[in-house]
Design a protein around this nucleic acid. Structure first.
Length: 609
RNA sequence: GCCCCCAUAGUUUAACGGAUAGAAUGCUGGCCUCCGAAGCCGGUGAUCGGCGUUCGAAUCGCCGUGGGGGCGCCA
């Protein structure tokens, strides 16, 4: 168990012994005071005062006098109605050594499997900055969940049967231009799509597009195979972007495979639910309809949701429900898979594919969808309908909509059709970032090492700038903000890490005895307390699916380290061995936590920059 | 009409119902002979409005204001 949790629990126990209060209540009353007040605090006197109709200040004073503190604590001080507790020297020493020597901390394995879907970009254009936000959220939440002990499967849904793809395919066939070798295919296809979508306004073109779409849906034809090949080529190009940012997947599920492999069984399954009814009259006559219930659906003019149309075809919601039944392992049918691309992290990404081999994807307990905020309503519908269908089985999957507000330009939204993304792709952003980062790297670093470091810094800076803002806030894109290398940024955190590395490198030749009875300074204690909070912060960030909490934490940690750094020399003349030893331990501990935290955000911690 | 999200220094933002609302950036004044100045120290400056709940509200509730999104047998 982590030291902080343990200390809190011991403290709660001591409180419950000192006064008439349950351990749980005591534990809930513990919080973090500001530095000047103490290391941990309790507000228990407030609730006791209310129950006993007494003065909380007096109660706090009584507890201060009465409490028998566990060894992690040195003293208790009542400040008005607040109770503040101070960690003991021994406890601080333990924080440093525990964190410095800890092996890669793996949380207890959890039984649940999480299937997380992101970013599901239409396969006919490059990723723009909006898609990037989605992918970065999905990627770092995946890392956090893994760290928290879940089995995590990263899935990408590829809608290869959409109208956009049909249009792009029409353009590919009918426009004279062929893709040039000096441009990424997704960029080329995306620009071409802008032209096609204008062209497709014409009725005769639109009709041809519809015909293509129909053939794609039916499958088996040359057209459908060629269209799928086009899609895969585009996704492969998109994935080059993904890899450059350190974003990886386990499996890609194509809409065409959903349509051909699980759709029929899914429909049958839906029909079996008694909360889903076949309408025989009214305006939905002939349709299969889910009867929605609950607060969010009351007061709606028509809370019924059509899953299957009167002509027997499924609506978008219906299809989505079926896909989620598969994700939750509620269908017998399963896809076959083949290799899609070997990723730079050493893992293969698989794709659903006709004629592939059987593998074990899906069948998850928690289904997370990283999808824009505007889809809240349809996501609620899908979740509820999946539960209606699942009710009859044993398993009840948990559906999570990880909603985020979009990243956009000051005056326009990103639109594939209008091409407003041109000049704002994730590739261009990274290229600009690399250019800016390269200028700041130490002159003695040269060649490929310099290039590697520049791209690590650029990708890190961008990742951080997107992730540090809470997902439910809009991001108005600005180059300077997205590529910031100072202040609240990844380079700030990486820089602290590199400073740690520098010290340890310089200290490498010398040997120090174990520090003994060292009296920590204000800066040292502040830093150690931050280190102590690593586990709690990462597990909360995972539970709440909020990576920005980790960004915030890392900035605090780096800042606490920088303050320590300027006040606490280690290898300078006149520093005694005991002090040097104690401080080196702190540096090791800090470096480890900075590196681990950055990794959970998909950012490389560098030794030099 | 109904539903959802957002509103905090000039700007970008953080804050399990707890103490003096924390950062960054900007502007401004300092700090490299000393483990890396992508850094450190100081100054400046904020909870959209009203009512309520509470010992205590940026946070919870109600009513507003401003901005964004959603509510199809569309995709």
């Amino acid at each position: 168990m982590c030291m902080l949790t343990e200390a809190k629990e011991e403290l709660a126990k001591a409180l419950s012994v000192a006064v008439q209060v349950g351990e749980q209540e005591a534990l809930a009353s513990i919080e973090y005071p500001k530095n000047e007040f103490g290391d941990l605090a309790s507000t228990i006197a407030f609730s006791l005062a209310k129950a006993q109709k007494r003065n909380p200040v007096q109660i706090a004073n009584e507890i201060e006098a009465k409490i028998k503190l566990p060894p992690a604590f040195e003293k208790a001080v009542a400040t008005g109605p607040y109770l503040n507790f101070f960690f003991s020297k021994e406890f601080f020493a333990k924080i440093a050594s525990a964190a410095a020597s800890a092996k890669k901390k793996l949380a207890k394995k959890k039984k649940e499997k999480v299937l997380i879907e992101f970013p599901s970009v239409n396969p006919n254009k490059p990723w723009h900055m909006g898609h990037l936000r989605n992918a970065l959220l999905g990627d770092s939440v995946s890392r956090l969940l893994e760290h928290a002990g879940f089995v995590v499967e990263r899935e990408d849904y590829i809608d290869d049967l959409g109208l956009q793809v049909a249009q792009s395919f029409w353009g590919y066939k009918n426009f004279p231009e062929k893709p040039p070798s000096n441009e990424k295919f997704d960029h080329w296809l995306g620009k071409q799509y802008v032209k096609v979508s204008a062209e497709a306004e014409k009725p005769e073109i639109n009709e041809q597009v519809r015909k293509i779409l129909h053939e794609m849906e039916k499958g088996g034809s040359k057209t459908s195979k060629d269209a799928r090949a086009l899609v895969e080529k585009c996704v492969l190009a998109q994935y080059q972007t993904s890899f450059a940012y350190g974003i990886f997947h386990d499996v890609l599920i194509f809409e065409s495979d959903i349509a051909h492999v699980i759709f029929k069984e899914g429909m049958e399954r839906i029909k079996k639910s008694d909360r889903i009814v076949q309408e025989t009259q009214g305006k939905n006559a002939g349709c299969l309809v889910a009867k929605m219930s609950g607060a969010e659906f009351e007061g709606m003019e028509n809370p019924d949701k059509i899953l299957i149309r009167s002509d027997g075809t499924a609506t978008y919601t219906g299809k989505d429900v079926i896909f989620h039944l598969w994700k939750a392992g509620l269908l017998k049918g399963d896809f076959a898979y083949s290799e899609f691309v070997s990723q730079p992290n050493g893992k293969m990404a698989y794709k659903s594919a006709n004629g592939g081999k059987k593998m074990k994807f899906g069948n998850a307990d928690i289904l997370v969808n990283v999808i824009g905020m505007e889809q809240s309503y349809p996501q609620k519908v899908v979740a509820q309908v999946v539960h209606m269908v699942a009710e009859e089985g044993k398993k009840k999957p948990q559906l999570v909509h990880l909603a985020y507000e979009h990243a956009a330009l000051p005056d326009v939204k990103f639109s594939g059709r209008e091409g407003t993304w041109i000049g704002y792709t994730a590739d261009e952003l990274l290229a600009e970032g690399i250019k800016r980062a390269a200028e700041k790297i130490k002159p003695e670093i040269t060649g490929t090492e310099r290039e590697k470091i520049a791209s690590a810094i650029a990708s890190g800076a961008i990742r951080f700038s997107f992730l540090k803002t809470c997902a439910d806030k809009k991001i108005i894109f600005e180059w300077d903000r997205a590529l910031s290398m100072e202040g609240d940024s990844a380079p700030y955190v990486i820089y602290a890490h590199a400073r740690c590395g520098g010290i340890l490198e310089k200290a490498a030749g010398r040997t120090f005895g174990k520090a003994n009875g060292y009296a920590y300074s204000k800066e040292e204690m502040a830093l150690l307390k931050k280190i102590l909070q690593f586990d709690e912060t990462t597990s909360r960030a995972a539970e709440e699916y909020r990576p920005h909490m980790l960004c915030d934490y890392l900035l605090d940690l780096a800042s606490a380290f920088n303050k320590f750094y300027t006040t606490s020399p280690i290898l300078a003349e006149g520093i005694d061995e005991n002090t040097a030893s104690a401080r080196l331990e702190i540096v090791k501990a800090t470096k480890k936590k900075l590196a681990d935290g950055l990794e959970l955000l998909g950012i490389k911690a560098l030794e030099k920059m």
